[in-house]
Design a protein around this nucleic acid. Structure first.
Lengths: 220, 220
DNA sequence: GAATCAATCAACCCTGAATTTGATTAATTC
DNA sequence: GAATTAATCAAATTCAGGGTTGATTGATTC
């Protein structure tokens, strides 16, 4: 409460185009610093989790004075909240609907490979789960309900065998899709270092696609 | 280095049977305190992760003087290492082999539901992954190789369609099986509070069983 | 171009939490 | 049953790390 908020000016073109500062030259730009802090924070939190992350590290990575974190976000907690909120937001926005189930799943795999920090962040958040649903719990519940409904519609569509429950399947698929990043240690134990690579994501996506395909009602 | 090790006396019956201390009565028992600390530590670390866990909390829960942690384990790090090692050990020991794949998976689900702390612990450990394999990395790699080999044998046995790669499948299954505990937040968003219950584990296991069943080569 | 406000910075403070130290007392040995 | 060792405890120490304060200076406005 009471910290600066750096409103992203409604019309982006209104203010004079802010040139990127040249080397050595020091320039003030709240939006830029805010963005840098957020970016660095996302990485750090994703890498180490909330508790193990040091604000000084974030500041250093963002090339910003550490006090500015309090200035803009009111402290570690506030920064974290904002990072999580942003991640959830972008995550929810990229639900490519109206595709066959297998393609949605595959897209999810590739998507999370493109931004591994996001998966990890959500995983930390999940583990930190204290059992009671928070403010955005409702939103998440709503979101999940939609997803379940989507799977169910696909089932009615004849894409999914009748003995599989959409809700359970959804949980499995979400978990399985993010496995290369959330179970990185195990993934590495199985596949070696390449498990983190981009190519791996595509072959993994393909495998998941095949599995989903096997779930179609052949001899239902 | 230099801390007490409380050797679990080779012959367990050698020393006089240690009666459990009566209320009010104070009694010294290195093995008991060691065990209590380990148990409490497992819970705490599983609940909050390494960084967010306070030794004082562990001590309190174990009803033990906090200094004894240093005394027996040489500090937080040492304690954590030991907890992880023990968890990995028991985890590796309970691979019920020679069962059909679907049953192994189901057993894994039920097993991890019986000891959610273990799943969570390994999940934290996974997330903390720094990219380079540590001392027990080799052991884990070996263990995983075995598991992959097991799946592959099942595939040769005609239990698994030819278009599925055992290694990829294994990763998915491990991830999916532990989902109720590792993705507890999402699980709760989908199913509500009951996702943590024991009954849920059995229905979830059944669902996973069905999915694996769908992977058998019908029209290979 | 003077005045005002916003952004940045460096230094200090304060708390929580791990570790160290030294004393105390139960168990064990001879 | 005295001496020795091992286990336990309370208090002191240290230190990392998040938050706070006050000064400084770039931008903006009139």
């Amino acid at each position: 409460m009471g910290y600066r908020v750096a409103v992203a000016t409604s019309e982006a073109a209104a203010r004079p185009p802010r040139r990127t500062p040249r080397q050595g030259e020091r320039l003030r730009d709240p939006e830029r610093t805010r963005a840098r802090i957020l970016a660095a924070a996302k990485e750090q939190f994703a890498a180490h989790g909330f508790a193990a992350t040091r604000l000084s590290d974030i500041a250093e990575q963002a090339e910003v004075n550490k006090q500015l974190i309090s200035y803009y976000f009111g402290g570690k907690e506030g920064l974290y909240t904002e990072v999580i909120a942003a991640t959830l937001r972008t995550n929810a926005s990229m639900t490519g609907h109206d595709l066959p189930l297998e393609e949605v799943v595959a897209a999810f795999v590739v998507g999370s490979a493109a931004d591994p920090a996001a998966s990890r962040l959500l995983m930390w958040e999940n583990l930190t789960d204290n059992g009671q649903d928070s403010a955005e719990g409702k939103a998440q519940r709503e979101f999940m309900r939609e997803q379940v409904e989507y799977v169910r519609s696909r089932q009615r569509n004849g894409e999914l065998a009748g003995d599989i429950d959409p809700a359970h399947l959804l949980l499995m698929l979400i978990s399985a899709a993010s496995a290369p990043h959330t179970f990185s240690r195990i993934a590495r134990a199985i596949f070696g270092a390449e498990a983190a690579s981009a190519e791996f994501a595509t072959t993994y996506a393909e495998q998941l696609r095949r599995i989903v395909r096997h779930l179609s009602p052949v001899n239902d």
